[in-house]
Amino acid sequence: MSAPQMPVGMIEQVAGKGAARAARRRRGMDQGIRRPGWLTYLMLAVILVICAFPLYYAFLLASTNATYIAQNPIPSLIPQGQFLENVVRVLSADIKFWQAVINSVIVAVTTSISVVFFATLAGFSFAKLRFRGRNGLLAFVIGTMAVPTQLGIIPLFIVMAQLGWVGNLLSVIVPAMVTAFGVFWMTQYLSEALPYELIEAARVDGCSMIRTFWHVALPAARPAAAMLALFTFVASWTNFFWPFVVLGSSNPTLPVALQLLQGTYFKDMALIMAGVVLATIPLLVLFVVAGRHLVSGIMAGAVKG
């Protein structure tokens, strides 16, 4: 019945005409749905201020000094002039800051790519392929998330020591290469966003399973994959305890290095907050650069049923 339509959708997905299609749809929608009123924007503005304030508060504290912070529970909403000074103090502190940044980038990028690939592969299988034990195995995957991670530290450390990876970035990368969370997320997304007709069409065309995955599932998964990549990146970027135990301060990731700013008897909140801001800036930059694609990826949406 709808055979003539389906390949079009498929080709558009694969050939990346998503943007054009989205634009078409948006134009169509613009006529259909009117723009929301000022109340909506006011609500959004309030939400945004709430979202941004704690970070701005951190920046405000980072632009002062410890004495000012102690004397003023409500800091001036205008930043004071000592931000750069505090940043310089963070950068010149004995914490291997730049090595930590590089390590964090390597770990975050590798795990993001790897998680997206393996999770989409498994998600495609769980969501769209029928096989014996599927439900049981999926439940098992979800169940693995319920294991409290703190306790796994000791046995995991034993594994890493056996592999000789202690102190090596591999010890942080490999355990995070595919996550139950990612598999679950991709399964849920693809089960809704990828119509069976598309797979069917590809199969009728004689595509092998892996080609079907490449040409149909992966493109359909793009918006969710973009989000998964971001989630993985952020999770990896902010992870503290395991890297602290297995890498230590000699080959640190960023949170491990920044934690050392608290390693003085006197806790200089201005310095610590400058560290907080510095650690967050790379993510914000990534966010501004990739976020546009990410969010428009979400907007482009999946194939419409």
Binding site: C51, W237, P255, G291, I298
Partner: peptide
């Protein structure tokens, strides 16, 4: 959309 995700990038 990016705005509401800002808190998430703070460790």
């Amino acid at each position: 959309r990016m705005g509401v995700l800002v808190p998430y990038v703070v460790a």
